[in-house]
Computed example of a mutant assay.
Amino acid sequence: MTTQDAREPSELARRLSGAGLLTAEIHYWLPDTPSLLQLFVWQTLDEAPGFPRLNRFLDHWRREIEATLHSIRIAHSALVRPTEVRVVDGIIRLH
């Protein structure tokens, strides 16, 4: 089990505040193989429509990785929203 940074909110707290699962397909070329288009798939929790974590990751990519971006395709799905959490009054018994 890993310890969590005190400044970082928990995964559940992030989901309840509107974060959803983001999947990014990043197509890129490396300098030594420019004729080969490569694919990197990355998943994280992020908030639509601004996608701050994705933007930070892409800024890091542009600064630190020697690869030319070709295209990025994203999919985002909210996993848990505050409106989906509701209190149910009653008990259902099976048997």
Rank of each mutant, 00 (worst) to 15 (best):
P34H: 02
I72N: 03
I92W: 09
I72E: 00
L94D: 05
R73I: 10
T33V: 12
L22I: 03
S77K: 12
A78V: 00
A48H: 04
W42S: 09
L30V: 07
T33W: 04
I65M: 12
Q43A: 08
L79P: 01
E8S: 08
R15F: 02
L36S: 14
W29D: 03
L69G: 04
P52Q: 04
R63S: 14
V87E: 05
S77M: 11
G90Y: 07
I74P: 02
Q43S: 14
D32A: 13
A19T: 04
E84R: 14
I74T: 06
S71C: 08
S71G: 02
L36T: 12
L39V: 06
R63G: 06
N55V: 14
E25Q: 04
I26R: 00
W29N: 09
A67S: 15
E47N: 15
L21Q: 00
P52A: 04
H60S: 12
F57I: 13
L79F: 04
V80D: 02
Q38A: 14
R15L: 07
T44S: 14
L69Q: 11
A78T: 14
S77H: 11
A67Q: 10
E47S: 11
P49V: 15
E64T: 13
L30R: 08
R73H: 10
L12S: 03
F57R: 08
D32M: 07
G90N: 06
Q4Y: 11
T2L: 10
M1T: 12
L79E: 07
D59M: 13
R62W: 06
T3K: 11
P9V: 02
A6H: 06
A13P: 02
